[in-house]
């Protein structure tokens, strides 16, 4: 646990100092929401239909930016090699990176929801609180795979292009479940009205985190 915490602490210090991940992710999410606001903001029917998808497009596209920078920072000065030289199990390195990425992406997710509520005139009370657990579950599924693929892409020249191409097809079940659950909340219903989507989202989170922790060793170590 100490090693996981050391990695999380290092990532938080780095982010507080550089603000690279937050600023890029947040600005990008804001831009997407503004564009959607201008495109659909005046049509209530389309808005009701498309709002959950808009929210998750803004969130995931912004999140990809953050994930691609996550391991790029490790690559500068080959600091990642320094980490691999230590007697640290690769699954602990994965856990540390995944948790810190989830923290960053989830915070951006909260701020994205707040911007979304403001731009599209939803009620804070009935929308924000129920959306938070969905955001958290969605972040875990999204980041678990994203952290693995980000590590995989660091040694390639086209890492910014490769990451979304690899990531989005795999996380479709997470996105679809999260969009359905968010739709229920935005329609004023309980999350449990889409119980099957909730189960699917939790199941995929568990599967993805476990599978990625096991396979991380083969991705990060040179064969």
């Amino acid at each position: 646990m100490n090693k996981i915490w050391a990695i999380i602490k290092k990532d938080i210090i780095t982010e507080l100092r550089t603000k690279e991940l937050f600023s890029s992710m947040l600005l990008f999410a804001l831009l997407i929401i503004v564009v959607f606001n201008f495109a659909f903001g005046f049509s209530v029917e389309i808005l009701n239909l498309a709002a959950p998808a808009m929210l998750w497009i803004a969130f995931t596209f912004a999140g990809v930016l953050g994930l691609s920078r996550s391991f790029a920072l490790e690559k500068e000065g080959n600091a990642i090699i320094g980490m691999l030289l230590t007697p640290t199990d690769r699954s602990l390195i994965y856990a540390g990176k995944m948790i810190s990425n989830t923290i960053f992406v989830f915070i951006v997710g909260i701020l994205t929801v707040i911007m979304f509520i403001l731009f599209f005139n939803y009620s804070f009370l009935t929308t924000l609180v129920p959306l938070l657990p969905i955001m958290l579950l969605g972040s875990i599924g999204f980041v678990s795979v994203g952290t693995l693929f980000s590590a995989m892409a660091i040694n390639t020249k086209l890492r910014e292009v490769l990451l979304p191409i690899l990531l989005f097809p795999i996380i479709i079940p997470v996105i679809v479940s999260a969009v359905k659950l968010s739709g229920q909340v935005l329609d004023g219903n309980s999350v449990f009205a889409a119980g099957s989507s909730l189960k699917l989202l939790v199941s995929f989170d568990i599967i993805f985190v476990t599978a990625c922790a096991v396979t991380f060793e083969y991705v990060i170590d040179e064969s």
């Binding site: 290092k10 210090i13 780095t14 550089t18 000065g77 080959n78 600091a79 320094g82 030289l85």
Partner: peptide, 12 residues
């Protein structure tokens, strides 16, 4: 291990 790469974090 000491290499020509420092294996250090520039932002720390």
């Amino acid at each position: 291990v000491i290499s020509h790469d420092p294996y250090l974090y520039e932002t720390l």
